[in-house]
């Protein structure tokens, strides 16, 4: 299950614009959510032990978010600190509580954990969302002419489609995917706000630099594969890959 997560990132890429030693960026990460469907302190302790004993390695030091959204907190009395110590006993690392209307905020304060309000990805996944996870229904930005040296084009919150070439010294950026129906001779950066699933496509790869969510390759590395051929760029196992189209 995915949640949105704010984290401190080291500078992986050239941050020419700022001298900051860090940046704040949104990212999607996988974490456990401990979702209660019923609450009974003893039963919880017993069942959690069973789960963890089944595969202890798997749960070691895993961050976990505690979710009471299926419970009616007005009727059930919960000992937050007790839940946390049970989790920690079994090697889990509770990091936050899932938002709930009737959370006892005073009790939460004593735990020093955060309360987070994940996006819509939490409960039911609509099939349409699944098939178009990153275009998120927004209109792609379409550029009808070549992108010239020195120009910069950014598609905020959407895909970027360029009908023409991207010249050397030009830069195109998008939060989503980038499609170039022409030669890519400049720089293309996709998924700039932390989208690992973004891809870059071009009909002729002569790129200076390509980057997906901060993972980048420069032309020295690119010239060995798919050079002057139709190509796509994508992330897999935290590494940027190139393949012919």
């Amino acid at each position: 299950m995915s949640v949105y997560w704010l984290c401190f990132y080291e500078n992986k890429e050239d941050d020419r614009m700022t001298n900051d030693c860090f940046r704040l960026k949104g990212s999607v990460m996988t974490t456990f959510i401990l979702e209660f469907s019923d609450f009974d302190s003893d039963m919880f302790k017993h069942q959690l032990k069973q789960k963890v004993d089944a595969s202890p390695e798997f749960f070691q030091q895993s961050p976990v978010i505690i979710d009471f959204s299926k419970l009616d907190l007005q009727k059930i009395e919960i000992d937050y600190l007790d839940i946390l110590s049970t989790c920690r006993e079994h090697g889990l690392q509770p990091t936050a509580f899932h938002h709930h209307e009737h959370l006892d905020l005073n009790a939460i304060k004593n735990t020093n954990l955060a309360v987070i309000k994940p996006g819509s990805s939490k409960t039911e996944k609509k099939p349409t969302q699944r098939s178009l996870p990153h275009s998120s229904g927004t209109q792609a930005k379409i550029i009808n002419k070549p992108v010239r040296s020195g120009q910069q084009i950014y598609a905020e919150g959407s895909d970027l489609i360029i009908l023409g070439s991207v010249s050397g010294g030009a830069e195109v950026l998008a939060d989503g995917n980038i499609h170039i129906y022409g030669s890519l001779r400049g720089r293309a950066l996709a998924g700039v706000k932390g989208n690992n699933e973004a891809r870059i496509f071009c009909t002729n790869n002569e790129a200076e630099l390509v980057s997906i969510n901060g993972h980048f390759l420069v032309s020295d590395a690119l010239e060995t594969q798919t050079w002057k051929q139709p190509a796509q760029f994508y992330l897999s196992n935290e590494a940027l890959h190139v393949s012919t189209l």
Binding site: S149, G150, Q151, S167
Partner: peptide
């Protein structure tokens, strides 16, 4: 060629 490309961008903007 690159500088011409740049000036074309300026003409268009």
């Amino acid at each position: 060629v690159r500088d011409s490309d740049r000036i074309l961008g300026i003409l268009q903007s």
